[in-house]
Structures are given as C-alpha cells and as structure tokens.
Design a protein around this nucleic acid. Structure first.
Lengths: 362, 362
DNA sequence: CAGTTGTAGGCAAGGCCTCTAACTAGAATT
DNA sequence: AATTCTAGTTAGAGGCCTTGCCTACAACTG
C-alpha cells in the first residue's frame, strides 16, 4: 500500500491544480485556490513547482479584462508542449488520425481513404508520422475494425469471421514513433465506451451490426474485454436460425447474405431479407446478452442494425426477460470512444509526470 | 477527489498498522515498524491512537519466550470486541450461519436442516439472532440459492426457473438485527468468487449445474452481476436442444428431467439421460460464455455438472473457439465465497472506524 | 484628485505528521 | 558486575497545509 509521506500530500495538491487547469483552461492562482479548495499559499507553491517542471505556464494574459476592480492577476494554463495524444481508427474504408491535447481539443485530423486492407500497412505509419513530427505525442489509442488480442494489441482473425482490416500489429508499427504506450482495441469496444459516456448507464450491452458482427458488454461502468480481448465476438454464438440452432454468422450464410469471396455481411442485399427471420436470430443474441450480462438496456449500432430496431424490439418483447432496446446515439462512435480514452490516459500521464521535488530556493 | 490533509497521512499509517495486525494476529511495536515500513515513533503513535479508540489492545503477552536478550516487548492485537461478520447461506436443504472475525477465523457455526422453503422464514431469524446475541456483529453477507435483485437484496422468481428457497427479503429480516450492511447475493456468484480466489485467474466463467442452473462471469478480477444482479441466470439462453434452438431450461423439459410440481432439475434421473445430448446443450451455453465474456477457463460446478466433465470437454473441443474446461475445486464454494467477502468487508469496516483524532495529552 | 473598495498574491506563524538519531529500560549472557 | 542486545521513548529537523495579515494595484466615489 501507499506510504504516508508528505510527498503524497504534495502530489495530491499538484493533481488538483492540474486537473482544474485541464477543465478550466486558464485560471489565476486565486481562482485555483477556490476551484481546488486548497489555500492560496498551497496553490502558489504548487503552481511554482509545476511551472518549474514545465507542465504549467503563465499564459501571459492578465485579469483586468472588464472583471472590475482589484489587482491584476496572471492566468496560468497547461504548458504549450505538455503533450498530446494520438487517436487512430482503422476501418476498411480508411484510416483517421487525430491529435488531442489535455484540454480535450482536437488539434489536428488527418484522413486517408483506402480501397482495401492491403493499403493499411503503408498508410498507417505515414499518417502517424505526420502527426508525430508536428507534436509532442505522449501516447496513442488505436481502434481497429477487427478482433484485437488484449495482451499483444495485435489484430487476430477468428475462424469464419470477416477479417476487415487484416493482419496488423499496431503496437509494432506505432510504438517506435512515440515514447508512451499504444493501446489497441476493437472498434465496437470503443464505440461502447463512447455510448457509455453519452448514456451514463453502468451496465448495458452494445450490439454492433455492420459488415462485421460484434458486441460489447459494459459492466460496472467499464467495457469488459475478457481474458484475451475477444469478449463480444459473437459470430459463433448459437442462436435461432432458419433451420434450427445455428451459429449467428451462419444464419447469414444460410440466407445468402454474405459477400462472395470474403466472409463479411453483404449489407446491400440485407434489405431484401425477411426482417422477422433476422430479428429472430438477433433476438437469440440479445437473450444471451440478457441472461449472461443482465444489461439495463441493449444499444443497437452499426450500419444496418438500427434499421431493424422495430423488428428487434418486437422480437425481444416476447422474451421471458424483456429488455429495453434503443438505437445508438453517438456519431462516429469508435473515434469518439478512442478519443475519450486517449484524453483520459493523457491526463493521467500528465498528472503522473508531476513527481520529483523542486526545492524552493533556486 | 481527496483533500491533501495531514489527517490523510495519519489514517494511512493507522491502516497499515491495522492490516498488519489482521494477518499477523499479534505484533510488538518494533515488529509493526518492520512489517509496515514505518518508523518506530510513527508506529508507537498509531498504536496509542488505536488503543485509545478501542480497536487495538495489548494482548498481555510479553516477548521473552525464548526469543533471547533484550527488553521485553508487548504484543498488540485487534481488540477482543472489534467486531465480527455474519455469513449466512440459505439453500433448499438448510440454513448455515457462521461468524468470522477480522483475522479470518470462523468463531462459530450453526446449521439447521430444513425440509422445505417454507421453513426458511422461521429458521433464518432464529439462527441469526443466536449469533448476533453472542457477538458484536458489524455486517452480514448472505448467499441464497435463487436469483437476487442487486438493488434491493430480495430474492426474485424468474419465469420458468425453479424457485428453490422462495420469496424472501434477507435485508428486511437480518437488517434490524445488526447495525451494518447486509449484502445478499446468489450462491453461484459467491461460488465463483471463491473459485476466483483459489484459481487466481482474472477472467473466467463458472457454470453451475445442480437442481438450479446458473453461471457467473468473473471479469477483470471481479464477479460481474449486471444491472439488477441477474447476470448468469441462464435458463432462457438459446442453445442446441434435441429438437433445434431451445431455451436451456426447456432442454431438460423436453428430456423429461424436471421434477414434477416444481421447475427444478431432477438430478436423480439425469444419469439415465444421454450425456452427448446434455453436453451439446451445455456446449451451446459455453459457446455463449466464450463469445460474450471470453473467459480464460470455464469452471464447472454444481451437483451433477462435474460428472459430465468429459462429455462437455469433448463437445467444446469441437468448437471453433475451444476453451479449457475444468471442474470446480473449492469445497462449499458458496459459503467460502460469502465468507471471503464478509472478511473483506469486515476488515474495511474496521479500518474505516479508525478515524477521529485523539490528542496525545490525556 | 484623494479616499475607499475589492481582488491578486506574498509572508509569517502555527499545527501536524513522519523521519532520523540518540537515549533509556530491562532482560539474557559472559 | 559488565556486556550485549532488543523494545520503546524522546528530541529535533524537515515538510506540508492552513489561517491571518500585509502589500500591490486597479476601479469606483464623491
């Protein structure tokens, strides 16, 4: 456990100051004292330390901008070069890279359209290198439209599942470009995290129905990834198919709804299928989610999932354990979720850098 | 967030001292200083405070028991009346109540056999009252062989599921007898927690096959209960039955393996059933667990589950995503799990009581 | 324009908490 | 009786946070 040292108190003070600056962007010492609940001398000392460490800087702005009477105060903010996080999403149609700073601002965005998985290997490092060259990148989160091995960060191909992005080791590609960690996860898990923040519900399930099939379970406020990160890869889940108990993905095979050559869902042809049959299969998946994870609500996302909302709702209403169904509400959910995670990690990283002592006399 | 006060440091010191005493049972101040890593004066002060608050007491024992030279030291331990936790399990065959102290010792055990659910309402309060009268009971954990509503602690009956213990509100029954919280959960969840501690695996699933059917999912080192605590109630999970896609519980209905009158499994008649058919249905459940929770291992427990281990293992080996299957290893798992949780809560409760200041001069 | 008001920030003192170092207490060994 | 060794206390130093007071300085008031 933690040792009861005075340094612990100091680091708590510093964290208060830093976190206040992250949300308020700029504050005078007096404002910081009010925001943090600390006394003015304590805040002053903390600011002095943080400035010395290069994490906080005087913005140059001064108070009397119509604020009224009183002595002029100096606004402090996070240092310019206090670091940013890189957010990358890799999907069959393109690669996006964003840069977020500790305020949560997106300070750059690059998108490259690709025509096939083969291009990822070339596009990914070039997109990342651009951003890394321009900013002090501390860490990176990556969203990929394929199952991700939690322990290695590599994309993995599961039997009979579409492999949309293809074989890729983002940690190996991006790791050398920056100094901090590279966190890779599946697009559905990131999407669920984004939905979690929008919904404010601690226990729910996110069912993603697009070219690939997937889901994510949020339990006790966190996305649960399982032992190797493959939780939610529902292709082989046994459900009710047209001819009996069938793995979920094979329902689409039996209905002739998979793309030739690949194992992805043919979304274009889906509209001709009987919604009731699809809903029955999806209902089996929802039942599995309800029995195993007991979500408060099941959120349906993906390119074609929400269009079946009524059919799914009707199917689930007949279940012995009905659960509310709703459509996903966040736009660009994977990017949003990965960005939120990156912001969180970046802020924690920034706080953790406020460590070593700086004696007052200098 | 926490405020950086000196009191925080003090409470950390006190926590160190208390937790050391919990595991070592009795220590001198010098030994405490070594164990906790704190300095001797700090430990002395902390012990003085804790004695004054009645949480720690001089055991009366003195060091020179052949330890060699040196001044005699005094052994300190937790105070006699520092409180115990009550652990109750409620199953169709009986009610057990145990008392654990903060060392983890079981200091009393009562068991009452019952012949039917109707007796629970009478037996439960009487068993609990005995224990409560004899000890300073701070809190209580309850294991019940039925689904438990996480928010209220009440037992709930799900459609088509056996209701083994019957309608009961343990919080209402036991709450008035003691001053602390009453934590109620399902026997399978407690069993999974016990198995978790024995296995040391952070992500696994526990499948319970007895008169009732259930499972529990441990993710990131914790049992995940879901929104209302009904995660793992797998009766309605769609799986492969003799005639196609069937809810798990109805597989047993179709096979004529449910007890007449109730909806429980008739365990006696199970041995006549075809293991392959059962294993196929169970395999569907395991597949659901694997796809949704991605466990490192699936543990099979319950009265008849382990006897089918080979058949289940064979069935799962054919799956596109095989997972290791093993039999549960903990005896009395629900009681063990509930006891471990009670111990944890009791220790945290004890630590949290070490709060208010005690000035030195007295 | 002089005086008043009100805010930003600094300084000093006080209270605590932990640590190190030195010291006292007391038993076993030599 | 002197030595040795361990338990626990005392003394002092260093650090951190707080309160209270002071200075600097801009705007308002009459």
């Amino acid at each position: 456990m933690t040792k009861p040292s005075q340094e612990l108190l100091r680091s708590i003070s510093d964290e208060h100051v830093l976190r206040s600056l992250m949300t308020a962007r700029k504050l005078t010492r007096a404002e910081l004292a009010i925001q943090t609940g600390l006394s003015k001398p304590t805040v002053s000392e903390s600011v002095r330390r943080l400035v010395e460490q290069g994490l906080v800087a005087d913005t140059g702005e001064r108070t009397p901008g119509g604020r009224g009477k009183g002595r002029v105060g100096s606004f402090y903010g996070l240092a310019e070069d206090s670091g940013v996080a890189l957010v990358v999403t890799i999907a069959p149609d393109g690669v996006t890279a964003e840069c977020v700073d500790a305020y949560g601002d997106v300070i750059s965005r690059t998108h490259r359209t690709i025509t096939g998985p083969a291009e990822v290997a070339a596009v990914l490092p070039s997109v990342a290198a651009e951003t890394v060259a321009a900013h002090n990148v501390r860490l990176c989160t990556v969203s990929a439209a394929d199952p991700v091995d939690r322990r290695t960060g590599r994309l993995v191909q599961l039997p009979d599942s579409p492999f949309l992005v293809g074989d890729l080791d983002p940690v190996a590609v991006l790791g050398p470009l920056l100094h901090g960690p590279v966190v890779v996860d599946n697009d559905v898990n990131w999407a669920a995290q984004a939905e979690h923040e929008a919904l404010g519900v601690a226990d729910f399930a996110y069912l993603f129905l697009g070219e690939g099939l997937g889901c994510a379970v949020v339990s006790d406020g966190e996305v649960r990834r399982g032992h190797s990160g493959l939780a939610g890869e529902i292709s082989h889940l046994i459900t009710a198919g047209p001819t009996g108990a069938t793995p979920f993905i094979e329902v689409f095979g039996e209905l002739g709804l998979r793309q030739d050559g690949t194992t992805a869902i043919d979304v274009a042809r889906l509209r001709d299928a009987d919604p009731a049959v699809l809903a029955r299969a999806i209902g089996g998946v929802v039942t599995a989610l309800v029995t195993l994870a007991d979500p408060e609500v099941v959120v349906i996302g993906g390119s074609w999932g929400p269009s079946l909302l009524d059919a799914i709702t009707a199917e689930c209403a007949r279940s012995p354990r009905p659960v509310p169904i709703r459509a996903a509400s966040v736009a660009n959910p994977s990017l949003t979720g990965a960005r939120a995670a990156a912001l969180d990690l970046l802020r924690t990283d920034l706080v953790s850098r406020a460590g070593p002592r700086t004696p007052r006399s200098g």
